[in-house]
Structure formats: C-alpha cells, structure tokens
Design a protein around this nucleic acid. Structure first.
Length: 581
RNA sequence: CGGGGUGUAGCGCAGCCUGGUAGCGCAACUGCUUUGGGAGCAGUAGGUCGUAGGUUCGAAUCCUGCCACCCCGACCA
C-alpha cells in the first residue's frame, strides 16, 4: 500500500474527553471516529487492525472444530420473554418497535437465538457435540460508555455456543475452548491471564474470564504468583484473617464526639485499624424479617457487593440505606453504628468473626464501644464471606499469598448447562430414542475491545507499538524526499515490490512530506518494522532499519529484503486440532 | 438514575461577567523557499456561536425550556 493512496489522517491534538491512552491513540491515529456516545466508526486504518484480530480468532475457532455462522442482530421480544430476560436483562437491552408495534431488541448476546436455532436444526445425538459461533456487532446500552471502544455501547464480539448430550462432554469441550482462547491471546501477542469467574452458583458450572493485563484495566484480579490461584476480585474467596482470641479487655462505652469514621477512631483513640469494625446498613430482601440488614466488615476492609447480593436476606441489587432510614430504625447516625445492642439483623464477615477486643459504634450518637467480644457482649451472628480480598490475604486454594493486579476482560467462557435448552425447550433424541435437553456452553471474545487492550499494553510516548500479528502493516518504508530524489524513489519502489512479492505486508510512505512528519506519523500508528531510504544512506550503499521503539542499524541496500524477511516473525498459523471426535 | 460540568471552524481553545459587524493555535487549500525528527514567509477557504423561544433598537454574550456530550457516584458509616 502506498501512503499517498491510503486515508491517513493523524492528529497532534486530541479531543479533551479521551482519558486513557488507547482511546487517545486511536483518535490521534485516526483509527476510530466517534459518531455519538459509545458508538464509533472504524476508519480504513482501524479496520485493518480489527480485521486482523478477528481473523486470528476465526482461525483458532475453526481449528478447534467450531463452525462459523451469522445470526440476526435484531431479535424479536418473544424469544426474550421465553427465557425471562426481556425484563431481567434490564436497561442494557436496547429495545425498539416496528411499524406494526411488534417489539425487538438489538442483540446484546445470542443465547436465545442460538437455542431457537438449535430446537429446529438439532434433533439427534448424532449431530452433537457441535459448536457454532459468529463474529458480529452487538449493542448493550451501557449506563456510562467510556474509554472509546473499550466500553462502547456498540461493539464487535465473537460469541460461540456449544451443545452436548451430557455434562462430561460439555466439560471436555470447555477445556478445549480454554486452550483455544489461550492460543488466541498468545497469537495476538498479548500478556493475559485466565481467571476463575464463578465457582458454582449453578451446580458445578464453571466460568473463566480472560484478562489482558494492564494498569488501566477496570477489573481487579487476585492471584498467587505461582499460578495456583487466579480469580476476579469480585468473586475471590476471602478467608478469615487470624483466629479469635479470648477476651482480654472489659467492654467500655467511650465518648467519641468527633469520631465519625474509622480514620477518626484510629487517629483520635489510638485504636489499631485491625481492631475496628465498620457497620454498613443495606436494604434487606422483601421477605426478610426486617427492612434493613447490617453487614459488618473490618475497618480497613471493603464490602464486596457481589458477595453481599448473594445472601438471601439482602436485596438485590445492593442498596445502601440513607441516613434518615438508618436513624429511624436504629436511633443513631451512620458514624456511630456497631453490633452491640443493634436492633436489626446482621451478618458479619469471616474476619470480623475472628476478632476480639475490637471497637465499633454504640448505636448512640457520638459514642463507641471499645473492647467488644463476641458471645460475651453480643451473640455471634451469621458469618459469611462479605469482603473484597486484599493483597497479602491467604490463598483460598493452597499455601500462597494473594497479589492484586489489574486486567481488561477480553474473553469469557461459561458452562451454561441446561438453563436455555430447558426454558426454551430445545430437545435432542438420545441413543435410546429419549428426548433430552442438551447441555450448553457459551464462549465470548470482545474483538473490538482487544484492539484497545492491545494498545494499553503496547505503547510509548510516541504512539502505538503493535504486536506484529495485528499491526496494520508489518513494514513501512520511509522514502525520504522521494518526490525530489529519483534514486530514493526507485530504490523504495524496488524494495517495496520485492517485499510484496515475498508476501510481506508493506506500506511505503511516498507522501511529499518532511522527514520529521513521516517519522512521527509512522511511529504514532505503530508499524513494527521501519526501513528508511534516503539519499544520505544511498551514497554509502545502505538503508536504515529500525524496529519500532528500538535502535536503528544500517543494512547494505542489497540485503534489505532478505534482512526484513528474517526480522519478521514467520506467520504463526493455527494448528488444526480435532477435539470433538 | 443522582450530582457536577461543557456545547463558538475538522481538533484544541479565547470571547460571555460589563450586549454593538466572531477571534487565536493546530489541521486544510494556493504559491515560493526549505527537506534525516511534527519547517518559514505570503495568501485562501471554513462558523445558522447545540437548539427553540423570550428580553432588547441590537444577543455568542442576559433569561427560560429542550437537546447533546463529558466527568463523578457504597468503600465517610
């Protein structure tokens, strides 16, 4: 490709609303253009990268025996009513009405459509197992779209669905998908981690998320460096810290007029933060004995909303009580709450249950109890895992200590089981001629998000540094002043042709620009290999090679093509597997 | 959804308080010079000032409604 014939439109200045580096660089390079909130146009440059990601995903899915298809983006409400998700999916679902008043959703995912397809297409155990997938535009009406295509409303996703006669077959294929995903992210040149996402809310179902590791990631991952444990913080099990000691202090009521927060208590009364307890008041489930429920965590710990919502007594979604409600029920404000003589039910975190001689509010304004001990001063309430894990916590799985890192979720695989095949009554005849609901798995990859995640992980102050497999071009030839220098033009043309014949994806920058602009542009758009051809070098019979971000070196003109072919990684193709036989 | 903020040329911004013919930088276009790290000079083009109404002799500027976009949102208990 000649740069003069491509639409390159880079910018030095960035729209003020771009916050993270991938968003800024995608706008500055001109890869994307915002149409409206959370909705983007992919320009020719951006699309080249998007298609490369897509192609790697497609090749690996195909190599694992999956079959590509394409389902409609627009789906009738009836299917969603069947599974109950027309309401359950909530405001994320973009709904629309046609001229006859029929209701539709723009698909945020396709379990309903694929299950509907399956109940017509899949009749016999002889057709199973099977995995069908598509790469398609989805729409989720996010509350707050941000970070460009990282959290967009419209996005490109690969979604796959597998069907199996039994759970064992599903579990085996799930493992195949786990490996397939690992190969995909490896081939894309990304540093990633597979983490456990749910250990069994639905009877033995398994789920893993795949995260691209990056400081700017929206998700926190707890893991043990030896690889024995990795999970999203939302779900990582928090064990009790320490064991409960016998009471060593008397219970005492203390005047604490200025102490509204844990920090105030720690500073004003020399109470170690590990000896304090936070009392959080949330709304209870509708059928609970009281309208409110108290959740207690240690002063320096955070409540985990996902875990709290799983408690049957707690209203979902989690809703904190406001001060007025708290006063009406307890008679004290939020700064003075605690377990002693608390008039509403409570659930305490495992670590809180292991504490002794601790301080907490007295449920009287401006007073706290110090030296509180379970059983002696308060009956031990229900104990549950309520908090987020913190760095240094014991691993729930083995010996190590947890570390926290950040990641961008780019893939998610899940054993669905029979949830959809049962609710939509998809049945398959087994070998005994008996109708059975197939077990299903689903497997998603955020294709457009991967582009942004790759940039988050690979950039410097000059721009993007593409991993070779997804770079828009493998090589760029900078033909300095070629519009004036015939020798440069001819040599650039010669090397360009030779590289193309050799199957290398090459861009030649033949624009009549000053060299500095060309350097800056090509580094901004992040092409991995750069060949500079100028009169100065040609006088000495050399051209200059530089890897993006690396040092430059001179290459004799005649060896340039051979050198580049060596420098570029051999194409890493998918290795065919036959997992489903 | 709640709170806050912003809408002026493709991008970044000034002008608004104190009403009087809409400006700057970058980008774009033309010409000349320049040419190994985002050039210089000269010139050109581009804006219903988000939108609807109101006040006024006169509104980007003051007032009201609407729309769009952005940021923050248990973690102070």
């Amino acid at each position: 490709m000649k740069a003069s014939q491509f639409h390159l439109h880079t910018q030095r200045e960035v729209p003020a609303d771009a916050e993270i580096v991938s968003h800024r660089l995608m706008l500055r390079t001109g890869m994307i253009r915002k149409l409206t909130s959370g909705i983007y146009t992919w320009t020719p440059l951006g699309l080249k990268v998007l298609r490369k990601v897509e192609q790697v995903v497609r090749e690996e899915m195909d190599a694992s025996g999956c079959l590509e298809m394409l389902m409609p983006a627009v789906q009738p409400s009836e299917l969603w009513t069947e599974t109950g998700r027309w309401g359950d999916f909530g405001p994320l679902l973009l709904k629309m009405t046609d001229r006859a008043g029929r209701e539709y959703a723009f698909g945020p995912t396709h379990e309903e459509v694929i299950t509907d397809f399956a109940r017509f297409e899949l009749k016999s155990y002889k057709q199973l197992p099977i995995c069908l997938y598509q790469i398609q535009t989805k729409f989720r009406d996010e509350i707050r779209p941000r970070f460009g295509v990282m959290r967009a409303r419209e996005f490109l996703m690969k979604d796959g669905y597998s069907f199996h006669m039994d759970d064992d077959c599903l579990a085996d294929f799930y493992q195949v998908m786990h490996e397939t995903y690992s190969r995909i992210f490896s081939r894309l040149g990304l540093k990633f981690k597979a983490v456990r996402a749910d250990s069994g809310a639905i009877g033995g179902a398994m789920s893993h998320e795949f995260h691209v590791l990056a400081e700017s990631g929206e998700d926190q991952i707890a893991h043990v460096p030896d690889g024995s444990f990795a999970a999203n913080v939302e779900l990582a099990e928090a064990l009790a810290i320490g064991e409960r000691q016998l009471p060593g202090e008397e219970l005492q009521l203390v005047d604490t007029p200025e102490a509204r927060t844990i920090a105030d208590l720690v500073e004003g009364f020399k109470l170690p933060v590990e000896k304090t307890v936070k009392t959080l008041i949330v709304h209870a489930a509708e059928d609970a004995e009281h309208a409110l429920i108290a959740l207690l965590v240690r002063g320096d710990h955070e409540l985990n909303a996902v875990k709290a919502e799983k408690l049957p007594q707690v209203a979902g979604p989690l809703k904190m009580a406001d001060e007025e409600t708290i006063r009406a029920a307890i008679g004290a404000g939020p700064g003075s709450l605690g377990p002693v003589k608390l008039p509403i039910p409570m659930v305490i975190d495992r670590t809180v249950a292991a504490m002794s001689d601790f301080g907490a509010g007295a449920n009287i304004d401006d007073k706290h109890y110090f030296g509180i001990n379970w059983e002696r001063d308060v009956e031990l309430p229900e104990v549950a895992d309520l908090r987020n894990v913190v760095a240094g916590d014991p691993s729930p799985d083995g010996d190590g200590k947890l570390e926290l890192i950040r990641g961008i979720e780019v893939g998610h695989i899940f054993q669905l089981g029979k949830k959809y095949s049962e609710s939509m009554n998809a049945v398959i005849m087994d070998e005994q001629g008996k109708a059975r609901h197939p077990a299903m798995g689903c497997y998603g990859i955020g294709v457009s998000r991967i582009v942004a995640a790759a940039i988050e992980q690979n950039h410097d102050d000059r721009g993007i540094i593409w991993p070779e497999p997804i770079a828009p071009w493998e090589v760029v030839i900078l033909a300095l002043n070629q519009h004036k220098a015939h020798r440069v033009r001819e040599k650039a043309r010669e090397i360009y042709d030779a590289l193309r014949v050799a199957g290398v994806e090459v861009l030649v920058d033949d624009r009549p620009l000053r060299p500095g602009v060309m350097f800056a542009d090509m580094e901004l758009i992040g092409i991995p290999h750069q060949l500079v051809i100028g009169e100065r070098g040609l006088d000495q019979g050399v051209v200059e090679y530089r890897q993006r971000g690396g040092e430059s070196r001179e290459i004799p003109v005649g060896e340039a093509v051979g050198f580049l072919r060596e420098a570029i990684d051999l194409p890493n193709q998918a290795q065919p597997l036959r997992p489903m036989q």
